[in-house]
Write a protein that binds this DNA or RNA. Structure first.
Lengths: 200, 200
DNA sequence: GCCAATCTAGAATGATGATTCTAGAATGGT
DNA sequence: ACCATTCTAGAATCATCATTCTAGATTGGC
């Protein structure tokens, strides 16, 4: 390996940025702030990343892919309402185990990380995200209920993603631990909104 | 009334700012953008508001108070699980009737409107918000269930506010109408998470 | 020991946007 | 008609960043 030994790498910068997002939001991720956090001059940030936009976009993508991979894996094992409840609880568990990432995912919007189009190197991964999630939900719907009409899909998104998301948010926002009762609430929501369909 | 007749008032500016928030987010509410939207020079904005921060803080406060007043009123009429379901549906209904305000409330965070402390003139209203909501929930808990312990309060917040909030968000985000099924989901959530308590 | 390649350092540059300032216009009481 | 008062107009300031640029340091292969 020819050339001066690097003192800072992308990982250092990305994790500094994640820390900044978690405690002061994406708008606090200025190039100067990341540089300071890492202990590097601003120029070095640009040696690793095209632009601030690219750094933020990559950070968001890594976190979201990480979450989604776990969620999709949990859902892949499910084939009935019990399995769905497990997938729903996944989000609460993931939040407990990934405090910083959870703050990024639950408290901020994608558009605060990626303003317009995705930077070219990420476009492919970005385009795959929603289809992967949709496919996992649809496949589960077919396995568990034998159908995947629009209303059922709306129910699944609500019970497995949106309601848990909403329930978690206040705790994550306040920086408080997610209480056990939330796992129960999420599970009760799944059973209440998907339970009848198994018979129907 | 002595003095030149005004051509722009706070209302014009606030509603221009609301429109900007709803379609491009709070960071798009620059003083220049508001001025342009209203058709005024930037100086005139400062004739009505201390600062951009004050304009945004006041906008957020007006919207949130508007929502909360309706919600608290709906909850005040409730004294059992059916009443709670009505209060929960209030949010979906309010979202349908206040498209712009809903985008502000559901898609953005308070901290994007008010960075640090509240501007002095709003501090009082800000301080009253959470206690008013807490009191309304606690009073309902006592009426409906005869108790108001921490777990029950967590359940109420989830069922009446956080879960509906989470369920609504994707539609509001996408600018799509909130489907009927969401009202059902919200109601089913309330019954599932609060229903048993009535007997206990 | 010399060189291309890879990095650190940190000072310029430029753009964006909030805020302030200077002029001038309209109003209505006197 | 005159004046204090209330506003509009829009140019000038200032601060905050992102980004670019110039220097210089290291490294390992030759």
């Amino acid at each position: 390996m020819v050339g001066r030994a690097p003192r800072f790498d992308r990982k250092d910068m990305a994790s500094a940025a994640l820390r900044l997002v978690a405690d002061r939001g994406p708008q606090a991720v200025t190039v100067a702030a990341v540089a300071k956090e890492v202990g590097a001059p601003t120029g070095s940030i640009y040696h690793r990343y095209e632009s601030r936009e690219q750094l933020l976009a990559e950070l968001w993508m890594d976190v979201v892919e990480g979450f989604q991979a776990g969620f999709v894996a949990a859902l892949a094992k499910a084939d009935d309402v019990d399995g769905a409840a497990g997938a729903a609880r996944f989000m609460a568990q993931w939040t407990r185990e990934h405090a910083l990432e959870a703050r990024l995912l639950l408290l901020h919007r994608r558009q605060d990380f990626v303003a317009g189009d995705w930077p070219a190197p990420l476009a492919g991964r970005a385009a795959a995200l929603e289809p992967q999630l949709g496919a996992a939900l649809r496949a589960f719907a077919r396995r568990a209920f034998g159908r995947s009409d629009a209303e059922l899909m709306a129910r699944l998104r609500y019970a497995l993603l949106d309601a848990p998301f909403g329930g978690l948010k206040p705790y994550v926002q306040a920086g408080k631990p997610v209480p056990r009762v939330l796992d129960d609430l999420v599970e009760e929501t799944v059973r209440a909104t998907l339970g009848d369909l198994a018979r129907a």
